[in-house]
Amino acid sequence: MSLIAITEVRKRFGTNEVLKGINLDVAAGEVIAIIGKSGSGKSTLLRCINGLETIDEGSIVVAGAQLAADEVHLRALRLKVGMIFQGFNLFPHLTAGRNVMLSPMVVKKVSAKEAEEEARVRLAQVGLDHKFDAYPDQLSGGQQQRVAIARALAMRPLALLCDEITSALDPELVNEVLQVVGKLAAEGMTLLMVTHEMRFAREVCDRVVFMHQGRVHEIGPPGDVFESPKTLELRQFFGMA
């Protein structure tokens, strides 16, 4: 059974339909890259999965939690999927450690002591246990993004949504973040990532989804998608046509 089931999802911004009936099933432990031109709806799809955007038609179910507009459903859904953003979005008034501790304490009512232990483990996991007391503005972009990953992991999600998480980074900082994500993938975390890192997608992902004009245009293992794209649009996207 799939961990994430996306069925006939449609999404409109005013009269502009940005998702035109998306179907996608993601198995537990699968790593999926979503690629496509800007405006193809890939970020919107990701944001729909944890309810940052509402959907107009269709359904999204994550491990039995159904996407719905009310707070109870959203909370249940968001306990199962974490999200990491292009702009990191760390809480600037809290230290790295506190960023990681906050949600377990507030949402899951974990004690401060337990939350701190968890935060140290999670920061160590992304190689930043020595930055526990640093504020976000004392960290590099790559370090901030790794703290954001640790923060999402501390909620023990079943899946992680990564929305262009290396796009705001200087080139030399991209790898340290991708290494962390690669390690997560190897450990069996379910990952859905919108990305422009084609090499990473090819090496790490189980499947690649090419989105075009609000539809899943092509989908398959990276070998197939990268080596022998079937559609003209994908070939154009790769600059092959």
């Binding site: 940052l52 968001r78 974490g82 906050l102 507030v106 949402v107 954001a148 999402a152």
Partner: peptide, 23 residues
């Protein structure tokens, strides 16, 4: 306060009052 702060705290399953209070 940037929208990203709301989105990040929403994604961490916080409610409106928890977001207001802590973020």
């Amino acid at each position: 306060i940037p929208r990203g702060q709301w989105e990040a705290s929403s994604s961490l399953a916080m409610s409106y009052f928890e977001q207001m209070r802590h973020v």
